[in-house]
């Protein structure tokens, strides 16, 4: 019984992704770690919403091969990102480098926060025996 539990539990730990690209790409564990990180952050443009690490379509395996080649040629992660963006656009990266995409949500949040702050501050100056509609029209 115990063995069955151990077996079933260990099955839970397996992942589907291990079916793709059997064997290590690089002997050097550092390069292998870089390779795995890069391919998990590149969108498969043919099967969007999957990374090329998790996809087994031909285009994903071609892109993995190109990335292996670039890594073994000594290219940096930034070089590889540029290579992909030049061909497929910013959309191919799961972490887009376009700064605006990262800033705009926070910008909108701070505009909203500032507006809220102003409204609350304004209402705090209203007399307590206001008509309780809270629309500030009793001024």
């Amino acid at each position: 019984m115990k063995r069955v539990i151990v077996l079933l539990t260990s099955l839970l730990l397996t992942t589907a992704a291990s079916a793709i690209d059997t064997g290590r790409a690089f002997d050097d564990p550092q390069l292998q770690a870089r390779y795995l990180k890069i391919i998990s952050e590149v969108r498969c443009v043919q099967c969007q919403n999957q990374s090329i690490k998790d996809s087994n379509v031909p285009l994903a395996s071609d892109l993995r091969r190109e990335i292996r080649r670039l890594i073994s040629e000594g290219k940096t992660d930034a070089d590889i990102a540029d290579f992909l963006v030049a061909r497929y656009g910013e959309f191919v990266l799961y972490r887009p480098k376009m700064l605006a995409l990262w800033i705009i949500p926070f910008l909108l949040l701070s505009i909203g926060g500032f507006a809220l702050f102003r409204i609350v501050r304004h209402r705090m100056t209203l007399p307590m025996d206001d008509d309780a509609t809270g629309d500030g029209q009793s001024q």
């Binding site: 043919q46 061909r87 497929y88 656009g89």
Partner: peptide, 9 residues
Amino acid sequence: VGIDWGAYG
């Protein structure tokens, strides 16, 4: 070359 042209299908 397909990859260089950004082909995805």
